[in-house]
């Protein structure tokens, strides 16, 4: 029994229905359906360039789907006007691939930024809240550093503190493990799970790190060639005999996803050079 479809429909905080999206002439997504139930950590996996990050931008309303729709709390994202869209985004937090910290602001000011912009809280409360968030990611002591003084793992933790500054209901992670050492990776994995459960939020993690992701997510969508090719819990997918999933999970170089970029026949290609 599929655990996602068995939950009542209104319990999905984000739903993607028959979504297609194209950049110019290139079809990036062809009829994608996904469900993100409240309180769960769901991973979207797939090779580089399979449009995973674009999906997050579609959920956040930064891009409009060509066909289909993304619903957040039942509202079709691309039909909202600017004010309603911004209202919707205040329920979301997003961790960008490289943190996207504001380079002209200190760590403290980065985390305080959404609070200062969206609330009229007095300075003393902002200070307490920022330190609370920074403490949650273990960087209370780094509050006075500038983003340029942080390591990759630390910037991402600061960005995470900033993403959850206003206690969002949906937290999106764009490649949270890319370029991190194993220790930082473990820290981030831990944080994603802990923050999700502590805030009662829903997390959407875009990644291609199979082993990291399978260890802590509740549900996985595999995306390839613009379609959802497989979905299930990590345990189900580990046992999957689908060639693509097998190749991906076991990290094999060749398979349904070819090693070679499409090219003319190797032998002919080489001989042509010799005859010229």
């Amino acid at each position: 029994m599929n655990p996602v479809t068995s939950t009542p429909v209104n319990d999905n905080i984000v739903e993607i229905d028959n979504l297609s999206f194209s950049y110019g002439n290139r079809m990036l997504h062809k009829g994608i359906n996904m469900r993100f139930p409240r309180g769960k950590v769901v991973a979207i996996m797939g090779g580089s360039g399979s449009g995973k990050t674009t999906l997050l931008r579609l959920i956040g309303g930064q891009l409009k789907p060509s066909i289909g729709a993304v619903r957040v709390e039942g509202k079709v994202v691309h039909e909202q006007d600017d004010a309603a869209l911004y209202q919707l985004r205040r329920k979301m937090g997003m961790l960008f691939q490289f943190g996207a910290l504001f380079t002209d602001l200190s760590v403290f000011e980065n985390v305080a930024f959404p609070m200062r912009e969206h609330t009229d809280l007095p300075e003393s409360i902002i200070r307490d809240l920022v330190l609370l968030k920074l403490n949650a990611v273990g960087l209370r002591g780094a509050r006075d550093l500038m983003p340029s003084e942080l390591s990759g793992g630390m910037s991402r933790r600061v960005a995470l503190a900033r993403a959850v500054a206003l206690d969002p209901q949906i937290i999106m992670y764009d490649e949270p493990f890319a370029g991190l050492d194993p220790i930082s990776m473990g820290v981030i994995v831990n944080l994603i799970r802990r923050l999700n459960d502590a805030l009662g939020a829903t997390s959407i993690v875009v990644t291609h790190d199979v082993h990291e992701a399978f260890a802590f997510v509740d549900y996985v969508y595999f995306v390839s060639n613009g379609q959802v090719v497989a979905e299930g819990t990590p345990a189900e997918l580990r046992e999957s005999v689908m060639p693509f999933v097998h190749q991906f999970v076991h990290g094999e170089a060749d398979g349904p996803v070819p090693f070679h970029y499409p090219a003319p026949d190797y032998q002919k290609d080489m001989l042509r050079g010799a005859s010229a």
Binding site: M92, M94, F98, A100, F102, T103, E117, H118
Partner: peptide
Amino acid sequence: GLMKATEQLSAMEMMAINPIAR
């Protein structure tokens, strides 16, 4: 240009802050 390249403007949009205004 660099704020855009490092996704700082995108991040602002996702925080429901209009980067043109801010």
